[in-house]
């Protein structure tokens, strides 16, 4: 740079001082010119938080999964025993979805629970999408006035206490709960229906309800983005309303559907509160096991291994899903919701 030539008039200054001036100016120019330097300076606090509270803990979890629990101490000599345990047949009775119990078979309890959790999360995601899509469509194409009010009305329930919403379903489906007591006092049934609560269906209903408000938004955003003249062009080229929906609207709104599906599916696999409240033993999911391994059962290394296997399997499924849907989904799509 020509910067040093400028200070040529300062010949009598001590050399060191001149150098430091040049150095300062260069540093300043570099700082002003470098977006990365200025940007990362602002990102420092957040990156520190993410490192300390996300990266380090997940790494610790990873390391712990190769250890062994010895009463209240953890022995950290390397072992793969925890991972073996997950797929080992156990003496316990395995239920699959509560529908097909295998009392005779010795099943690897963790693996079975993992499969069940994934299957239930899949059903939850499917029913959420089926219910949320028409609503998002309604918001995007039919609502013209007070759109913001509608959006707020849809979004707010997602933010209100999830625990209380799950609890509400326990109250509704319970043996002495709202549905049973309502039907009895209406004279429709004599005895309370016992099949409402404590089964996988109750879990799926509760979780579907919990995610419903959340899933509308990403779908709505991708529908809203569709250029209306594309739809007119499709009609103009001879599509009926249904053909037009299937050939234009649905494909163009897929990014929103994919994003919403992932945001529902992934956390649902690790669900703990709902299965515990309304699932009973047949509706149990992997989250409950992880909790107990870190609580009463006190086997943290095994709990860590189970968690990691769950995350790994979910990640693989998600990658496969993205590959199949063929959409290069960007996190940005979700963000502008």
């Amino acid at each position: 740079m020509a910067a040093d030539a400028i200070s040529s008039g300062a010949g009598q200054e001590p050399r060191a001082q001149r150098w430091s001036i040049v150095l300062c100016r260069r540093l300043r120019a570099w700082y002003l010119g470098s977006d990365a330097a200025r940007g990362y300076l602002l990102l420092m606090p957040t990156l520190a938080v993410l490192f300390a509270l996300l990266v380090v803990p997940v790494a610790t979890l990873f390391l712990t999964s190769f250890c062994t629990q010895v009463y209240f101490k953890i022995d950290c000599s390397f072992t793969l025993a925890n991972y073996a345990t997950i797929f080992e047949p156990s003496g316990e009775v395995g239920y699959f979805l509560g529908i097909v119990p295998y009392p005779e078979m010795e099943t690897p309890i963790y693996a079975v629970l993992l499969v069940r959790s994934i299957w239930m999360a899949f059903l939850v995601t499917l029913s959420v999408m089926l219910l949320a899509y028409p609503m998002a469509y309604f918001l995007a194409f039919r609502v013209t006035r007070n759109k913001i009010r509608w959006l707020i009305l849809i979004t707010v329930p997602f933010w209100t206490s999830y625990l209380l919403r799950a609890f509400a379903w326990k109250v509704i489906l319970g043996y002495g709960g709202v549905i049973n007591s309502g039907l009895i006092s209406a004279g429709i049934i004599q005895e309370p229906l016992s099949f409402l609560l404590y089964n996988p269906t109750a879990v799926i209903i509760t979780l579907t309800h919990a995610w419903l408000a959340f899933a509308v938004l990403p779908i709505y955003v991708s529908l809203e983005k569709i250029d209306r003249s594309l739809l007119e062009a499709a009609s103009d080229l001879g599509d009926s309303r249904i053909e037009r929906f299937l050939r234009i609207t649905l494909p163009l709104s897929m990014p929103g559907v994919v994003a919403a599906s992932l945001l529902v599916f992934i956390p649902t696999v690790g669900e703990y509160v709902t299965p515990t409240l309304v699932g009973g033993s047949s509706g149990k999911m992997l989250g409950s096991v992880i909790q107990s391994l870190f609580g009463q059962a006190n086997n943290q290394p095994l709990g860590s291994a189970v968690s990691l296997v769950m995350m790994l399997v979910v990640t693989l499924l998600v990658c496969a899903f993205l590959k199949v849907t063929g959409s290069k989904l960007k996190a940005r799509e979700v963000q502008d919701a």
């Binding site: 740079m1 020509a2 910067a3 400028i6 100016r25 260069r26 300043r28 120019a29 002003l32 010119g33």
Partner: peptide, 13 residues
């Protein structure tokens, strides 16, 4: 790279 001078003063810093 290069430098811009305004009224004789280098501007990059």
């Amino acid at each position: 790279s290069g430098e811009i001078y305004i009224d004789g003063q280098p501007m990059s810093a």
